[in-house]
Design a protein around this nucleic acid. Structure first.
Lengths: 297, 297
DNA sequence: TCAACTTCGTGAAGTCCTTCACGAAGTCGT
DNA sequence: ACGACTTCGTGAAGGACTTCACGAAGTTGA
């Protein structure tokens, strides 16, 4: 299969760089930048690995996808590698970003220095709240959503960041795509559906905590999950009242879960339920590994 | 191998749930919560998959790791599954969190409703800046860093969120670990090194954009990377100046060894100019897939 | 009770990624 | 020059997920 793999890779023209590697390039870039700032000239895969918190073999493998730069017995030329990775990530031309939803999180992101320092320029902030229009964050004024199309075109923006509540996310997403955006970073807790050709990456802060919680759960309280409680297997009477209920530990974490008065904020209808929903997922491009770190302020 | 796989899994005692699956459980949880709110009683893997933006096969596989709940011909009981996943994620007991670094991003996170609504309670905000002490964010007052130990113990906190600048991150991390924290969510752009037993998850907003940039680069400007520019291959005269300096970069990165006043900035191949440097990681637990969404506000 | 359906559960095959291991290519000291 | 070292590059083996595919179990309607 190796034969096939390589063939496929080569056939894809340039870039046969695996996703996992792409997700790590920014990491190397950061370390290399730091080294360059200290006037360090060369770096070995071993050193680079330690600084990035990984293994040297992985570093070499990753870098090998970019070509065989690097000198045996010495290591890699910091400056050269830096430029090579930046080029690979398409950071040689400065990229513009439009951010929608200047609420709590959006506000913080708009002022986040890490974007600017790494080549991303937020050229527009959009929001529907009249009270926020005009407000300036990080030197950029908040504009009404209606100006999206004009701003995107005028600034040749290709990346959009969504920080709106979940209910508005899909609509905003659709509009961004129509306006010409082809890459989206989504902070809203909902799965966006987009046409092929558009990439979406999701970031959910609460999920990160939940994952930590999972591991936390099996550290402490070793036993814990003794017998999983009644699996409610066979039980036929499902129709009756809510079956599980009894062992319902999902508790508060969700806040209200009033099964009673249905209607509830019927609003969204969201994606679920009406199966037909819409463009199934799939199109969501790669998006797998996720890493990196913020840069408080 | 299958035999071995299973054996290994079983041997690990409870929980042989693969990391990739763990990373998706929060996603299912969110969808299920939404369904429960609408009084939906059962859901099929197909419907769940569409709502989560994935395939039904994956959903079934994932859920099968939790046990064989689910009724053929019908689907899964929403309430039961909800409780089962919450339990698996250890969300049955409410988890407390301490956040360090109430700057731009930290401030936003402290007020982030998504944490509260999903079972995480921020019980303490810490910062070194005297001006921020006392300020209240999301109902919690900012305390001086020195109170960390006391607050962590008093509230039985096990999860820490680091939103400090990269330079302070490792020190804060060490202190959190000493105080008893065993899970850390790191937003600082640096690889933290922690003792085994402590989990660290990293979130770097800029990296997400860089990954998008990578894909963006091969969409548009098809050709682009014409000839990669001089690989600097063969060039013998690398020695240039002090060779010694060049082949001992490893310490440099940790301690910094600003040997000459050289050109700095020259590297500029791109608009980047990052920051950071760091210590090894290794213990960083799994951490791979990343999903979910935020919840503006 | 039975036939027609739906939907789960899961071995097996297929992919992608990581780790191993070692030859090749350079550097360094004498 | 030459031997002793370093450190890269990479095939190959090993793992971890994902996707496929289909039998089993359960539901519904006549």
């Amino acid at each position: 299969m190796t034969e096939l793999r390589r063939a496929a890779g080569a056939a894809r023209g340039r870039s046969s760089v695996p996703e996992a590697t792409v997700a790590r390039l920014p990491l190397y870039l950061r370390v290399l930048t730091s080294l360059a700032d200290r006037a360090v000239r060369t770096v070995s895969s071993e050193t680079l690995a330690k600084a990035a918190g990984m293994t040297s073999a992985k570093v070499r493998k990753d870098l090998s996808y970019l070509g065989s730069y690097g000198t045996r017995g010495v290591g890699y030329d910091v400056d050269f590698l830096l430029g090579r990775i930046a080029a690979e990530l398409g950071l040689t031309e400065d990229r513009t970003v439009v951010l929608v939803g200047v609420g709590n999180l959006g506000h913080a992101l708009a002022g986040y220095a890490g974007f600017r320092s790494r080549g991303f320029r937020v050229v527009a902030l959009l929001d529907v709240d009249p009270d926020r229009i005009g407000e300036s964050v990080g030197g950029v004024a908040v504009s009404p959503l209606d100006e999206m199309e004009a701003l995107v075109e005028r600034n040749q923006v290709t990346i959009g960041v969504i920080c709106t509540p979940a209910a508005a996310a899909q609509a905003v997403c659709d509009r961004l795509v129509s306006a010409g955006i082809t890459s989206i970073l989504n902070f809203a807790p909902i799965a966006l559906s987009v046409p092929v050709g558009v990439d979406v990456r999701k970031v959910d802060l609460a999920v990160e905590l939940q994952i930590l919680s999972f591991h936390e759960a099996r550290k402490r309280s070793a036993p814990a999950t003794g017998g999983v409680a009644a699996p409610t297997r066979s039980p036929g009477r499902r129709a009756g009242g809510r079956s599980g209920e009894s062992d319902d530990p999902r508790l508060a974490m969700v806040t209200r879960a009033p099964t009673g008065p249905p209607t509830l904020g019927t609003r969204g209808t969201g994606p679920l339920v009406g199966t037909t929903g819409g463009t199934s997922g799939a199109a969501t491009g790669a998006v797998t590994g996720a890493k990196t770190g913020g840069e408080a302020s």
